[in-house]
Design a binder for these strands. Sequence first.
RNA 1: GGCGUGGUACCCAAGUGGUUUAAGGGGACGCUCUGCAAAAGCGUUAUUCAUGAGUUCGAAUCUCAUCCACGCCUCCA
Length: 469
Amino acid sequence: MRELLLFNTLTRKKEVFIPIESGKVRMYCCGPTVYNYQHIGNLRTFFFEDILRRVLEINGYAVTHVLNITDVGHLISDEDEGDDKMELGAKRENKSVWEIAEYYTNVFKKDLERMHILPATHNPKATSYIHQQIAMVRCLEELGYTYVTGDGVYFDTSKFTGYGKLARLDIEGLEAGERVEFSVEKKNKTDFALWKFSPKDSQRQMEWESPWGKGFPGWHIECSAMSKALLGNNFDIHCGGVDHIPVHHTNEIAQSEACNREKFVNYWLHGEFLLETDGKMSKSKGEFLTLQYLMDKGFHPMHYRYFLMNTHYRKKLNFSFEALDGARTSFERLKNRILTLKDNEKERKVDNSNIEKYLSSFFSKINDDLNVTEALALLWEMLKDNALNPVEKIEIAFEMDKVFGFGLKDIEHEDEVLDVPDEVMQIAGQRMEAKNQQDYKKADDLRNQLSAMGWKVIDTKDGFKLEKL
RNA sequence: GGCGUGGUACCCAAGUGGUUUAAGGGGACGCUCUGCAAAAGCGUUAUUCAUGAGUUCGAAUCUCAUCCACGCCUCCA
């Protein structure tokens, strides 16, 4: 097996990946809270995880991939204040929280499919694992890691040695209470809720009985419980966005390692943010970009996928329509190249040493902490290499595409007459006629007329084709 | 206030001590093709890597300082 290097947040270094079980990888990825649409920044993280998954698979690993669905509403802040995002979403849309969860889960899965993000092996829902979450809180209680306050059961972070090591937290320097009221009942500012009690004065749509009374699970426990249930106490890879490092993943480690009394995760990988011109993309700002919005603007999900490959997953990326436009052009040209190669794919001798040369270079790039950006550059270099014949190029491109995920194999010539209005078709026909009679003045006039109507004529060797401007 | 990241051509960006006097894509320009265009193909496009010092035989890559932009310490991908 080839050597694969991955950047581990725990050590802040690239490390050689060694699975727990030979040839197999168990991987857990933090999924969305389904109270609203996912924005294109959220999708960047799932895209990064998809690349990771594909790189593992092309290296021959059998991957068990868990991507959870958070359908329990958590409070907006860590303290005992604020509203529940799910309940808020339900109120906003006049639906039940369960309907909200189902609707946004489906949209999310549809988005992943459109982005060619491979479906996970398991998509556990937090509400289906309440029992396991309660069991884990009990486990922590029995081992003396918890205490009860007026609003819930809390994890005492001072009892867990090495708390915050993932994030390299400077606990003293944390300014809890700066922007949020600090709960006086919390013993340490980093303590967090494992189980929250339902409010006495109002009825929650989602609540469950527990040994501590009616309530709902704290935010971090679901990932600890579900990963334990599906992947075991110790597994290979855990990923998510960089924002999860200081709080969510830090707390997951504390809970899981405290309860299981063994190492939780071997490799932690985190994807960087997508930024907008005015900073981080975030839902709380109100308006945010969705994949559907890009599609409404005439972009294909693959254009966005190509755009994301412009940079490494550990680097911030600025979103702009100008850059997305560039990605669209690049992708369309790439498709064109592949189609041309497919058309010229005649039986020719394949020189395996040519193929091997490119593929080994390809592997050295993707296996160096998922450098798809360089791998993509290699694809272009290869396509322009005159030493290769079309059959060889196709073979290499398809192999590389197992990681890129553009779906190059399935690319076909598009139907050239996609709902062209009769009138447009007629004028285009007249122009062709005029052109054949060498009446270029008239032909050009008709072409201008078409472009005024929003259509572009492209002459081909035996006719013409029309495109929308 | 604390922690951290980044500044590479017109744009998105790769590269983190010598094989790079800097990938790839977009754009622009030129050529081929075309009646002319478009589309497509080919080619050109940074002696230079925010700025200033320093380390080194050698730096975009290491060190220090300065300027600028951004992220985290709230829920967040």
